[in-house]
Design a protein around this nucleic acid. Structure first.
Lengths: 350, 350
DNA sequence: ATGAAAGCGCTAACAT
DNA sequence: ATGTTAGCGCTTTCAT
């Protein structure tokens, strides 16, 4: 292939410009060292030849890859949870602006030979280790911190640079940098919004105990209701993050407690509530208000639009990359943890 | 950092096992060359030291990166289009199984300084060139082929290995391998489904002329309707891929032609149709049937569920990686183009 | 401000 | 079946 034969190297450029290889390297990495006229001559040669420094060689020499690893988890179907799309894109843009690229990976497959019995469950740490030891990436962005984050301990112990999207709920003394969104504040926004519109019986449909994020969001509802001197008694339902649980919870609550509004821990649950309302002939936004969490595409396009708490994912990505830059540039990391405040996307469902 | 000091190399392992560096390399890359007992001794040493070959060094030597480049486009809001999530994940898994990783990139930002006037439009080829010249990736997966694919010509000309997800609509003689989903067949599935349920006046809500994919999908409707000897006259609307256009198109068609069913070129449009039905007090699935395209999360969780054409993205990813493997392994590529057949996810909207 | 020498860790080619 | 030699393309160090 022509592109392989011809690929210019430092030496090619040096010959073309009539300087030494080292000077070309300096033109790239420390242009201030060159006399302006030399610099220009080299840059011209670079342009003429279409030269780009070979990444592998540079990586080997500098012991950096300029790659950030991100483990992505299986897409969950039948849920409204398409956070990743927005976050991922912002992350790619932010990393690009910082001179990095994103490398995607997953945990090890449980193996196609299921019968062999050696199908390991997906280890939280799976995949990180190999990339690390082979020096394939310089750092990680760790996103799945909802159950506490076992990766964090592992990575921290090894002195690996990483930034978490999500607080270290289970290890308050963890020392790695993180960025998170204040779910509690988001739900408070939702409660305020509903109370402003005259709702007094505002129900919560959330996740089972044991989820830090779930409890955090729920506390936004409970505390804010109390701030408004409104009762939360028997107005809370907890279950799986599924459409069907949202639906059943709504039916049960409507049967017994007659709430006029629902705040949900996720859009998936909220879509379940909407389903239940439809089944009872109730109009969302007119008869009963519903607010979701995540501002998923489903929330945006469903009928009627679903009011939802929107995480500032773009900003989160930017901050994460900034922290990463501090870490990798051996600069002082300004803050260990940064909490961003979500907004409320108000639509017809409330 | 301890991990940097200690990182074992081939030499470390060789010393530990009492063999030469080359033998360790062979143990890794051509284990069949080693005497079983030597192999075991080396593997033991590798395990003991936690050795992983340095990627940069290997890349430099072999002139491969084992990285596949994928350009991701900005996430479009207010649309149901979250294809990428599913596709991306499958692609990561498939590439991993093939011993590769996915490297994400975007085109160059148009620049934050809008006033300067040097904000370039996003070039279709943007981003590919640099990764290529720096040998950062071995190959690309090209996904955004809907307007014809200018990248394809560019990459093909340079002899770059790549596989497109999407036919080369505009260049039928393009010689690169591609995988696509038969949108036309998907829509035919939808029409059959509706006709089976007794619908005769089935309307089409699609995109403006000039979109190859749009015309392909539309032809599935038009031709299949004719196969069923049903009229398509005045039953077609064309416009932007937005909720609002779907909504307006549905209102207009319902006012004039009284269709009993809608087939849409996308879930976004279908959600618009659902919106219109709601505004007219019509029940989707009872009064009027609606079918979308993409089987987005929104289709899955909205009320009532939206029947939608589902692309076999997982399979597409697998096939793409297989072709990539053929290409990179300098094996014969079985087929230039592979067209997969979608399925229909039937839900309450029909 | 520019050049020469050395070497990052690996594998291909060639010995033995 | 194992060892030796060379070199991938770059940057770091040191000399000029």
């Amino acid at each position: 292939m022509s592109r392989l034969e011809s690929a210019p190297t430092l030496a090619t450029v040096a010959a073309e410009a009539g300087v030494s290889r080292q000077t070309v390297s300096n033109a790239l990495n420390s242009p201030e060292l060159l006399r302006p006229e030399t610099l220009e001559r080299v840059q011209e040669a670079i342009g003429r030849l279409g030269y780009s420094p070979n990444r592998a060689a540079r990586n080997l020499r500098t012991r950096t890859s300029h790659l950030i690893g991100l483990r992505i988890e299986p897409a969950v179907e039948d849920s409204a949870n398409a956070l990743m799309d927005r976050f991922l894109h912002s992350l790619v843009e932010s990393t690009r602006d910082a001179g990095y690229h994103l490398l995607l990976f997953t945990g090890t497959e449980t193996g196609s030979d299921v019968s062999s019995g050696d199908a390991r469950p997906l280890d939280a740490v799976d995949g990180y280790d190999e990339l690390l030891r082979s020096a394939a990436v310089d750092a990680f962005v760790v996103t799945d911190t909802y159950r506490g984050n076992p990766q964090a301990a592992f990575l921290e112990e090894r002195g690996v640079p990483f930034v978490a999207f999500g607080r270290p709920w289970a290890e308050p003394h963890a020392r790695h940098p993180w960025v998170d969104v204040d779910g509690r504040a988001g739900v408070q926004l939702a409660v305020d919004h509903l109370v402003e519109r005259g709702h007094q019986r505002v129900a919560w449909v959330g996740w089972q105990k044991g989820s830090f994020i779930g409890e955090d969001r729920r506390s936004g509802w409970a505390d804010r209701m109390h701030d408004h001197t409104l009762s939360t008694s028997r107005l809370s339902a907890r279950g799986d993050d599924t459409l069907d649980f949202g639906r059943r919870a709504a039916h049960a609550l409507l049967d017994s407690e007659h709430p006029t509004a629902f705040v949900c821990a996720s859009d998936t649950l909220a879509m379940g509530v909407l389903r239940a309302l439809d089944e009872r002939g109730l109009r969302p936004g007119r008869d009963v208000a519903v607010v979701g969490f995540d501002d998923s595409l489903a929330a945006q396009v469903c009928t009627p639009g679903l009011t939802s708490v929107r995480q500032p994912l773009e900003q989160a990505a930017v901050e994460i990359v900034r922290l990463l830059g501090d870490l990798l540039g051996h600069r002082e990391v300004e803050h260990r943890g940064l909490t961003l405040t979500p907004t409320l996307s108000v639509r017809a469902s409330s």
